[in-house]
Simulated scan of single mutants.
Amino acid sequence: MTTDQNTGTARDMLEPVLTRCAEAETCADPSSVMTLLADSSHTGGGFTSYRSSFAKGAAGAPAHFHTKAWELFFVISGSLQVLVGEEVSVLGAGDFLAVPPHTPHAFAAAPGEEADVLFVFTPGMGRFDYLRLLGRVMRGEADPAEIAASSEQYDNHYVDSPVWRAALERSA
């Protein structure tokens, strides 16, 4: 704890977070590479952030929602197809999307496109182990049932979305 010089109140001292790309941990599956940037343990719970590079046709994430966190998307390059509620749209380079808690959403590389996307969750929670688990499942090294069993731990709740299924079928 330190004392804020402006207010005189005690507060926890947070340190800046710097993650060098060359030193960042990556998780890969057959269609994407996730670069782990800052988990909530590094940010005092303020946020969690990672970057995903999706190959053409990459599936991304099925329809799901979070009960505690906003999920923020910033498209660095390429195109990302997203579901928000019942609406499917395509985000292009430079587009930003913020999805509030309890809102079903999904994402995938737009048809015929690659996508490079920065993700931020706020408030943060330990999600890096979840991302590592996803990679293991996609590579056939872990049972998909582990994902369902971890929904509360990682605040990732999957839902059925006929709208999203139809969008994926159209782009196949």
Rank of each mutant, 00 (worst) to 15 (best):
M1V: 03
N6C: 12
T7C: 15
T7K: 13
G8A: 14
T9Q: 15
A10T: 11
A10Q: 15
R11W: 13
M13V: 10
M13C: 07
L14A: 13
L14R: 14
L14P: 01
E15N: 09
P16Q: 11
P16C: 01
V17K: 13
L18E: 11
T19Y: 00
C21E: 15
A22Y: 08
A24Q: 01
A24F: 01
A24P: 12
E25M: 15
T26K: 01
C27D: 14
C27G: 10
C27W: 12
A28F: 08
A28R: 13
A28M: 04
D29P: 08
P30G: 09
P30K: 04
V33E: 11
L36H: 05
L36M: 15
L37D: 09
A38E: 00
A38Q: 06
D39S: 02
S41M: 12
S41P: 05
H42P: 00
G44D: 08
G45Q: 03
G45V: 00
F47W: 02
F47T: 10
T48E: 10
Y50R: 06
A55V: 09
K56W: 06
G57L: 02
A59W: 03
A59N: 13
G60D: 02
G60T: 07
A61G: 15
A61P: 08
A63K: 05
H64K: 05
H64T: 04
H66F: 01
H66R: 01
H66D: 02
T67M: 10
K68M: 13
A69I: 05
L72Q: 14
F73H: 02
I76G: 03
I76A: 00
Q81N: 10
Q81W: 08
Q81F: 01
L83C: 07
G85W: 12
G85N: 09
E86T: 13
E87R: 11
V90E: 12
G92E: 11
A93R: 11
D95E: 00
D95P: 12
V99H: 09
P101L: 00
T103E: 04
T103A: 08
P104D: 00
P104T: 03
P104E: 00
F107K: 02
A108I: 05
A108S: 08
A109E: 07
A110C: 00
P111L: 06
A115M: 01
D116P: 00
D116E: 04
L118T: 06
V120W: 11
V120C: 02
F121K: 08
F121M: 04
T122L: 07
P123F: 02
G124M: 14
F128W: 13
D129P: 14
Y130F: 15
R132G: 09
G135R: 12
R136P: 10
R136E: 11
V137W: 07
V137G: 13
R139A: 14
G140T: 01
G140E: 05
A142K: 14
D143R: 06
E146V: 06
I147D: 08
A149G: 15
A149Q: 10
S150R: 07
S150A: 11
Q153V: 15
D155V: 05
H157V: 03
Y158S: 13
V159G: 04
V159E: 06
P162G: 07
W164N: 11
W164I: 05
W164A: 06
R165W: 03
R165M: 11
A166Q: 06
A166K: 05
A167V: 00
E169C: 07
E169F: 09
